[in-house]
Simulated assay, not measured.
Amino acid sequence: MDSITHTLFGLTLYGAVDKRNLDKNHKRAYLVTTVGASLIPDIDVISRLWDTSGQYQMWHRGIAHSIFLTPLWAALFFLICAVIFKIKDKKLFLLGWLAVFIHDTSDLFNAWGTGYLEPFLNNRITFGTIPIIDFVFWVIMGIAFILSKKNKQKSPYYFKMAWAFMSLHLIIQSAQGLLIYNQYDEKYDQVALSAHFVPWTYSVIVKQDDTVTIFQDNLFQEEKEQYVLFSNKDADLDYLFSQRPEAKTLYEWSPFVVLVDDGKRLGLYDPRFYRDGQSFLFEYIER
């Protein structure tokens, strides 16, 4: 998910805590833990500062997003609160652990995926059933915030209900994505999903031999062919990788790629991010 959504997740988690009997320092500790732990895995973006080998695509959402690292991030915020706020509450550790778990797990469901099982499995795990910015989540959390302001006594209840409705949305959206995925998986060599911003609507990216086709589909309409792309299997990947290390990283990171060698450019791109004639993730060199 994007940073705004992760921040809202943290605030909604904080809102679900009953703070009526907490003093100011406890409240601050809870706020720092829920929001900070909801964002901390994305600290890996600073790897851009020292990336000289084109590995950023693997470092971002890599080991920092591993499920095995979640208790360590939680322990970090427990120590921060102990030092800054003089609060040693085991609930802070559990809350921080939950916040990091929500961050890492929610990132599994969009097309970017995460290194959820690193260092034991380096592949990106992605389901592609939730867009990276899901406005349904925003609406649910926004409603909880408005209701909590109108009735502060029931504030934690509204935020807990928000988590219930967001979980339900995730289940419904992902179940539909799985059904659609299975319809294509029987017909094509490779299949990937990328959810649209419109709920229950997906791009289905399929590869058969050297042809990649992108469909728009949902359970309530006929599939619509959007793009047909051709991958040049004779592209010189060794030369490309030697000149553009980022291309090798993208090749390893993506479920599958489209290879380009048209005499002007040699490169590859991830078709899941293909819009209006170009992919957002495209690494190439000029001929």
Rank of each mutant, 00 (worst) to 15 (best):
L250S: 01
E118Q: 15
V206R: 02
W73G: 01
G277L: 04
W50C: 01
V258F: 03
L13M: 15
R48E: 08
W200A: 03
D18G: 04
L259G: 00
H60L: 05
V191I: 03
S242I: 01
L69Y: 05
L39F: 11
E222F: 01
E246R: 13
F145Y: 08
Y227T: 06
F135S: 09
A144H: 12
V228Q: 07
L268Y: 00
V206Y: 01
Q278T: 01
K19E: 13
L72V: 13
I285M: 03
P41V: 05
L79H: 09
K154H: 08
F9Y: 14
D270I: 00
Q153K: 15
T34H: 06
Y239A: 12
F230K: 07
S38C: 03
V204E: 06
T5M: 08
V139I: 10
G36F: 10
L31T: 08
S106Y: 11
S66D: 10
L69Q: 03
P271I: 00
I125Q: 06
K248G: 02
F230P: 04
D234A: 10
G54D: 04
H103Q: 13
H26P: 05
V32W: 09
R20T: 05
N232G: 04
S167C: 06
I84H: 04
I43V: 09
S148A: 14
V260T: 09
Y251H: 14
F282C: 01
L92T: 07
T5P: 12
T5Q: 12
